[in-house]
Amino acid sequence: MNMTKKRLIPRLLQMALVVVAVYFTFILVFDVLLGQLIPKSLLTMYMVFVIAGVVMVFTFTEQGAQELAGPIKALVEDPSRKMVRNVVFVIVPLLAGYYTYSSMLPSFEAPVELRTIHPAPPNKFKAYGKSFNLTTLENPYRKFEKEDPVKFKELVKEGGNVYIQNCQYCHGDRLDGKGPYASGLNPTPLNFQDVGTIAQLQESFLFWRISTGGPGLPAEAAPWISSMPVWQNFLTEDEIWKVILFLYDYTGRRPRSWANE
């Protein structure tokens, strides 16, 4: 069955236009409309697979593949296109050279680094002069949520007070990581409202992180940069457990748990 017909836009150009359109759609949607830019590393990954998908659609039929390869083949083989060929064969290496040069050029920008946000906790850790077993550690006040809701509410309120007096300067009064000091810190403080932070963790993990702070991070998490204080030096054990209650209560998240309610 011969499906060949003269196209208004050649297939190769169609494919290039689709790829370019998708690229600018990403930029338009994220950088302009939503005001949350799309990181270059992620956009590169996205575009690699968008291109893969587009190439697959344009080549799964024999006719489509031939139409796509036709102009490229003609460029290389057709004697009448000698001039275009020479121009392309000069421009392509020059572009590749320019890309290599610009990507290797030293810059003042700090190198990109992979940062481990949730380092693996140890099985045991020391705080307040004693050892805590993270695999069995539980919030002693969590039980009041069911047993004595009035008392639980009071504990949450106390935790809130601790938070406002100590934590909100960095983590913000909305717990969104946008406290008054946040802009001076890099990396910025954690946003507890994000579904990927405290909602993914057990309360024991939070207790470990709060009580031992940045210096208490494990060696496995290196390289690490954190300005989180060692809160066991400033807060009591009870205050930390109460503030944990407050974090979950205010954000409406549930601590990670394997037990059914």
């Binding site: 949350q36 830019l37 990181p39 270059k40 590393s41 992620l42 920008e109 700090a110 990109v112 992979l114 940062r115 481990t116 946000i117 990581g177 946008k178 946040a182 890099n186 990396p187 910025t188 403080p189 954690l190 946003n191 994000d194 990927g196 932070t197």
Partner: peptide, 16 residues
């Protein structure tokens, strides 16, 4: 957790 340049980190206001 995204791989971000410093300027992207500031623009986004955090690693998320």
């Amino acid at each position: 957790t995204l791989v971000l340049t410093n300027s992207e980190l500031k623009d986004l206001g955090g690693p998320y």
